[in-house]
Amino acid sequence: MRAVRIHEPGGPEQLRYEEVPDPLIERPGQVKVAIRAAGVNPVDTKVRQKGPMFAEGLPFIPGCDAAGEIVEVGEGVTERAVGDRIFFCHGGLGSAPGTYAEFAVLDAARTRPLPDSVDFETAAAAPLVAITAWESLFDRARLQAGQTLLVHAGAGGVGHVAIQLARLQGARVATTVGSRNHLGFVAGLGAEEIIVYTERDFVDATLAWTEGRGVEVALDTVGGATWRRTVEAVAYYGDLVTLLDPGEVDLTEARTRNLRLSFELMLTPQLRGLTEALDHQGEILDQCARWLASGELRVELAESLALEQVVEAHRRLESGGMQGKLILRP
């Protein structure tokens, strides 16, 4: 099969589109999937830059989420059949091969049924960002109806899904964007207060929107100085969730406000083999699939590129300003 592999950490040029052996079903419970579309995520660029997260070594196939059709089932598989349309988040970190490939083999339990009305590209774009947004808002921050939420980078992959999940929960949403070009997009998703952070200070704007109280929940997708300043935009006894390492920080103000600080890394169950957490993520995907089918949730596709254009895909993602998700087509 054709796949993309990383032989040495580094820049986008380290992504090699090449012929590799087809993956084989090696144990009971596995299925082989013909990948029709694969999502491109910031974590893919990080493992490309730094190398695999496991000690098995190089080379490895990156890519964490995908959608496709089952073409073979292993012994003991009863919940899936050849021809089933599925989507999933699995592999790509250096242990199990990832999704930048024509085929993948994984446990059937890690695949989720895909409604016929949801196309493969949309489904491939959803798993990592949907699970990240869900766990951040509902599992970490316990977002409730009527609460106020600040989402950073609302036009990005996680951000634009988080806005929609919050609105489905009945929360009110403010978001930051880097350009006026994104105003209509995030407004259409349900954002009530939209802050172009290059034109307005997001802390001042958030406090004005909440009449000085601050938001009950903030989701930081940027890290660093943005995380540190976001503390000032959160209400006393509120929640601040970050997807990134904020670095060296002074926690005095966060402590004074009695904030609940949380980290979100949706890859932890895969990295640490946490079966119950993986099952929970499957349930999240099941619900998101229902919302995608009903039109209550949308995943924005920035562009769909052929798998052999993977170098260009990584360059575009790392250039910033992306609205929605990039997709690769094997």
Rank of each mutant, 00 (worst) to 15 (best):
L285C: 12
L106R: 12
M53W: 09
K32H: 06
A306L: 08
W134F: 13
T210C: 10
R260Y: 04
G273M: 10
F120A: 08
L240H: 01
V20R: 13
A162F: 07
V161Q: 02
I131G: 04
P42C: 05
V43N: 04
M266C: 15
L24S: 12
E248A: 13
T148F: 00
D286F: 06
F103T: 01
T230N: 08
E72H: 04
G74A: 04
G295H: 12
R200F: 01
A205W: 03
C64G: 05
A67Q: 07
E300C: 11
E308R: 13
W134Y: 15
V20L: 13
L301H: 12
L143I: 04
G324K: 03
T242S: 15
V186G: 08
S262K: 06
L24H: 11
V249L: 02
M53K: 07
I284N: 02
H7D: 02
R228E: 01
G247A: 12
T176K: 10
E312S: 09
A101K: 08
H182K: 15
V71C: 09
A81E: 14
L128H: 03
V311K: 14
G184P: 12
A38V: 06
C64A: 14
D119F: 08
G170A: 06
I194Q: 06
L261M: 11
A208P: 08
M1E: 07
E312V: 08
C89D: 07
G178I: 03
R298E: 14
R48E: 12
R316Y: 13
L168F: 05
A145G: 09
P62H: 09
G212W: 02
P52H: 07
A101E: 12
F60L: 02
A218D: 00
V158C: 04
V177W: 03
E13A: 11
G94W: 02
V249N: 03
V118D: 02
R110H: 14
E308I: 01
Q14N: 11
E69A: 13
C288A: 15
V118A: 09
A55S: 14
A302G: 11
R110W: 15
A205N: 06
A293Y: 10
E211C: 12
E232K: 13
P62I: 01
V311M: 04
A277Y: 00
G39I: 02
L243E: 00
F202S: 02
R213D: 08
A133M: 05
D119K: 04
T268G: 07
F202G: 00
V129L: 07
G83S: 11
R48A: 04
R298D: 07
A171N: 08
R229S: 10
G273H: 10
D22W: 12
L150P: 03
A277G: 07
D139Q: 10
E193N: 11
W134D: 14
T242L: 01
E283F: 11
G159S: 06
P115R: 10
L189S: 05
A109C: 07
L189R: 11
G238L: 01
D44R: 05
G29I: 14
M1W: 03
Q309F: 00
P42G: 02
Q169R: 15
E193P: 00
R260A: 06
V173N: 03
V82C: 10
R167G: 00
R85G: 05
A125C: 05
